[in-house]
Structure formats: C-alpha cells, structure tokens
Deep mutational scan, measured.
Amino acid sequence: KELVLALYDYQEKSPREVTMKKGDILTLLNSTNKDWWKVEVNGRQGFVPAAYVKKL
C-alpha cells in the first residue's frame, strides 16, 4: 500500500471528505483525480485535496 504525508491541516467540508492534521501519515487509496485523492485515516475513508499531501 502507498502512504502519503499530510503537509497541512484539512477540515472536512462534506461527508465524502476526511479531516487530517499536518504530519499525519495516511493510506493512499486512489490518486487518479489530480485534485482530490482518496485516503484512509483513523479507519475512515474519504477525499483530501491532492495539494495537501505528498507521497512517501
């Protein structure tokens, strides 16, 4: 599985998104969309802005 690092805090704005804190390590589930990547964090799956994370 591929991991990404949260570069910034992000507060979810819809049920399809997830909240993350700067420094969190997230599991990358899908990065086919250039703007929104699907990740898993704390057992929850959802989208975060691709610009807010970096592949490890």
Results as ranks from 00 to 15, higher is better:
residue 1 K to Y: 14
residue 1 K to D: 09
residue 1 K to R: 13
residue 1 K to C: 12
residue 1 K to H: 14
residue 1 K to T: 12
residue 2 E to D: 14
residue 2 E to P: 09
residue 2 E to T: 12
residue 3 L to K: 11
residue 3 L to Y: 14
residue 3 L to P: 04
residue 4 V to Q: 01
residue 4 V to G: 14
residue 4 V to K: 01
residue 4 V to L: 13
residue 4 V to C: 11
residue 5 L to A: 07
residue 5 L to G: 03
residue 5 L to N: 02
residue 5 L to S: 05
residue 5 L to Q: 12
residue 6 A to R: 01
residue 6 A to T: 04
residue 6 A to N: 01
residue 6 A to G: 03
residue 6 A to S: 06
residue 6 A to L: 02
residue 7 L to K: 06
residue 7 L to D: 02
residue 7 L to P: 00
residue 8 Y to H: 13
residue 8 Y to M: 13
residue 8 Y to P: 00
residue 8 Y to W: 11
residue 8 Y to I: 11
residue 8 Y to A: 13
residue 8 Y to C: 13
residue 9 D to L: 02
residue 9 D to K: 03
residue 9 D to M: 03
residue 9 D to S: 09
residue 9 D to A: 07
residue 10 Y to S: 01
residue 10 Y to C: 02
residue 10 Y to A: 01
residue 10 Y to M: 01
residue 10 Y to D: 00
residue 11 Q to H: 14
residue 11 Q to D: 14
residue 11 Q to P: 07
residue 11 Q to T: 15
residue 11 Q to K: 12
residue 12 E to W: 05
residue 12 E to D: 05
residue 12 E to P: 14
residue 12 E to F: 06
residue 12 E to T: 09
residue 12 E to C: 11
residue 13 K to C: 11
residue 13 K to N: 10
residue 13 K to W: 05
residue 13 K to Q: 15
residue 14 S to Y: 07
residue 14 S to H: 13
residue 15 P to T: 11
residue 15 P to H: 13
residue 15 P to D: 14
residue 15 P to Y: 11
residue 15 P to R: 10
residue 16 R to N: 15
residue 16 R to P: 06
residue 16 R to H: 13
residue 17 E to P: 04
residue 17 E to M: 06
residue 17 E to I: 04
residue 17 E to R: 04
residue 17 E to Q: 10
residue 17 E to D: 06
residue 17 E to N: 06
residue 18 V to S: 02
residue 18 V to T: 06
residue 18 V to P: 01
residue 18 V to W: 05
residue 19 T to L: 03
residue 19 T to K: 05
residue 19 T to S: 15
residue 19 T to I: 03
residue 20 M to K: 00
residue 20 M to Q: 02
residue 20 M to C: 07
residue 21 K to N: 09
residue 21 K to W: 10
residue 21 K to M: 10
residue 21 K to F: 11
residue 22 K to M: 09
residue 22 K to D: 03
residue 22 K to A: 15
residue 22 K to W: 04
residue 22 K to P: 04
residue 22 K to I: 07
residue 22 K to C: 07
residue 22 K to H: 06
residue 22 K to R: 11
residue 23 G to K: 02
residue 23 G to Y: 04
residue 24 D to M: 14
residue 24 D to H: 05
residue 24 D to K: 03
residue 24 D to Y: 05
residue 24 D to F: 05
residue 25 I to F: 07
residue 25 I to T: 07
residue 25 I to Y: 06
residue 25 I to V: 12
residue 25 I to W: 06
residue 25 I to S: 03
residue 25 I to N: 03
residue 25 I to H: 06
residue 25 I to M: 07
residue 26 L to S: 02
residue 26 L to E: 00
residue 26 L to M: 15
residue 26 L to K: 00
residue 26 L to W: 02
residue 26 L to H: 03
residue 26 L to V: 07
residue 26 L to R: 01
residue 27 T to S: 09
residue 27 T to D: 07
residue 27 T to Q: 12
residue 27 T to R: 14
residue 28 L to P: 01
residue 28 L to I: 05
residue 28 L to R: 01
residue 28 L to S: 02
residue 28 L to D: 00
residue 28 L to F: 03
residue 28 L to E: 01
residue 29 L to H: 07
residue 29 L to K: 04
residue 29 L to Y: 04
residue 29 L to T: 05
residue 30 N to W: 08
residue 30 N to M: 09
residue 30 N to E: 15
residue 30 N to D: 15
residue 30 N to A: 11
residue 30 N to Q: 12
residue 30 N to I: 08
residue 30 N to H: 08
residue 31 S to D: 15
residue 31 S to R: 07
residue 31 S to Y: 08
residue 32 T to A: 14
residue 32 T to M: 12
residue 32 T to F: 10
residue 32 T to Q: 12
residue 33 N to L: 10
residue 33 N to Y: 08
residue 33 N to Q: 10
residue 33 N to W: 07
residue 34 K to Q: 14
residue 34 K to V: 11
residue 34 K to R: 11
residue 34 K to A: 14
residue 34 K to S: 13
residue 35 D to F: 15
residue 35 D to S: 12
residue 35 D to P: 03
residue 35 D to W: 14
residue 35 D to A: 11
residue 35 D to T: 13
residue 35 D to Y: 15
residue 35 D to R: 12
residue 35 D to C: 10
residue 36 W to R: 03
residue 36 W to A: 02
residue 37 W to M: 05
residue 38 K to W: 15
residue 39 V to M: 02
residue 39 V to T: 01
residue 39 V to K: 00
residue 39 V to F: 01
residue 39 V to Y: 00
residue 40 E to I: 08
residue 40 E to C: 10
residue 40 E to H: 05
residue 41 V to L: 15
residue 41 V to W: 08
residue 41 V to Y: 10
residue 41 V to M: 13
residue 41 V to C: 10
residue 41 V to E: 04
residue 41 V to A: 13
residue 41 V to H: 15
residue 42 N to V: 08
residue 42 N to G: 14
residue 42 N to W: 07
residue 42 N to M: 10
residue 42 N to T: 07
residue 42 N to D: 14
residue 42 N to L: 11
residue 43 G to D: 09
residue 43 G to V: 03
residue 43 G to T: 05
residue 44 R to V: 10
residue 44 R to Y: 06
residue 44 R to M: 08
residue 44 R to A: 07
residue 44 R to C: 06
residue 45 Q to M: 10
residue 45 Q to D: 08
residue 45 Q to Y: 08
residue 45 Q to F: 08
residue 45 Q to A: 12
residue 46 G to L: 05
residue 46 G to K: 03
residue 46 G to T: 02
residue 46 G to H: 02
residue 46 G to Y: 04
residue 47 F to H: 06
residue 47 F to Y: 14
residue 47 F to L: 09
residue 47 F to P: 00
residue 47 F to E: 04
residue 47 F to N: 04
residue 48 V to A: 04
residue 48 V to T: 02
residue 48 V to S: 00
residue 49 P to K: 03
residue 49 P to T: 01
residue 49 P to N: 03
residue 50 A to T: 05
residue 50 A to W: 01
residue 50 A to S: 14
residue 50 A to C: 06
residue 51 A to P: 08
residue 51 A to S: 13
residue 51 A to E: 12
residue 51 A to Y: 11
residue 51 A to K: 13
residue 51 A to D: 14
residue 52 Y to F: 15
residue 52 Y to P: 01
residue 52 Y to D: 06
residue 52 Y to C: 12
residue 52 Y to V: 09
residue 53 V to R: 00
residue 53 V to F: 05
residue 54 K to M: 14
residue 54 K to W: 08
residue 54 K to D: 10
residue 54 K to A: 13
residue 54 K to P: 02
residue 54 K to R: 13
residue 55 K to L: 15
residue 55 K to D: 06
residue 55 K to N: 08
residue 55 K to Q: 10
residue 55 K to Y: 12
residue 56 L to A: 05
residue 56 L to Y: 09
residue 56 L to D: 04
residue 56 L to G: 05
